[in-house]
């Protein structure tokens, strides 16, 4: 609560959260109705592919070569948890008949010349059809599910991402994937700017640095989206539970 008495004001770390809850949040919530049901809600899984999730490939191999063994260990532990939770989300969303969108970093050329120089520099690119562009085993797309290849952090930076979701009639996104502070955060910010309702599934995301994961989730929660964990989303999905109420389910 925002208090009128400065002596009982919350610590600065919580100020933005206090600003949004509950006054601003009540304004926000009154302006929308976004149940987690077909046909307007979709699960968006971001970069759950070998390049970013397989410790032996892509990012992991590069980090290991650079001597970041500790970091590699931490990150892939988090990725394993995120992938397990994403698998639960995927099953629940399929059961409830929600649209599922799989997006991955995948480019058209062998040498990545169609990738921006920044992503190229990071090594965050993989040729479409290559091993590194493959989705993780339990998270394979089914034939009728949308697969969106990208060469950018944000799903919405390419015009196509926004347009395909609009064509599907999607206005609510259940978002999960890697990495929290890069592609996931860019996508969540853009989604909010473009008017989507987003639930970020915190424990189905991972970042190189746990500290950045937490900070990113906290900040997105203040302004850009709702945050919930897998358990809550799995319980709410398919029910007429509003985005803003998911955290209160189960």
């Amino acid at each position: 609560m925002i208090t009128a008495d400065p002596s009982t004001a919350p610590a600065t770390g919580t100020i933005l959260r206090e600003l949004k809850h509950p006054e601003l949040r009540s304004v926000w919530n009154s302006s929308r109705s976004a149940p987690l049901t077909a046909p307007s809600a979709a699960l968006l899984l971001i970069d759950m592919q070998r390049l970013t999730c397989d410790p032996q490939a892509g990012l992991g191999a590069r980090l290991r070569a650079a001597g970041e063994r500790k970091l590699v260990g931490q990150y892939y532990d988090e990725v394993a948890k995120a992938a397990a939770n994403a698998t639960l989300l995927l099953a629940a969303c399929r059961d409830a008949g929600l649209a599922v969108v799989h997006t991955h970093l995948a480019c058209a050329t062998d040498d990545g010349r169609d990738v921006g120089s920044l992503m190229h520099r990071h090594g965050l690119w993989a040729r479409k059809g290559s091993k590194e562009a493959e989705f993780l085993g339990p998270l394979q797309p089914r034939r009728h599910e949308l697969v969106l290849p990208r060469t950018t952090f944000s799903v919405f930076a390419p015009w196509l991402g926004d347009q395909l979701l609009k064509n599907l009639g999607i206005s609510t996104l259940i978002m999960a994937g890697v990495t929290t502070d890069a592609s996931v955060a860019s996508s969540a910010r853009d989604a909010a700017d473009r008017g989507y309702n987003t639930i970020l599934v915190e424990d189905a995301c991972a970042a190189l640095d746990l500290k950045d994961h937490r900070a990113t989730v906290d900040f997105l929660d203040l302004w850009y989206c709702e945050v919930a964990d897998t358990h809550h989303v799995v319980t709410a999905v398919g029910q007429r539970v509003e985005v803003a109420e998911v955290r209160m389910t189960a």
Binding site: T12, G13, I15, L16, L118, H122, F153, D181, A182, A185, D212, A215, T216, F219
Partner: peptide
């Protein structure tokens, strides 16, 4: 930014990726 904490975290993430 409103708090130096948000400011610092943001610059850290921007400097790493973007």
């Amino acid at each position: 930014d409103w708090t130096t904490q948000h400011h610092d975290i943001s610059l850290g993430i921007l400097g790493r990726w973007f």
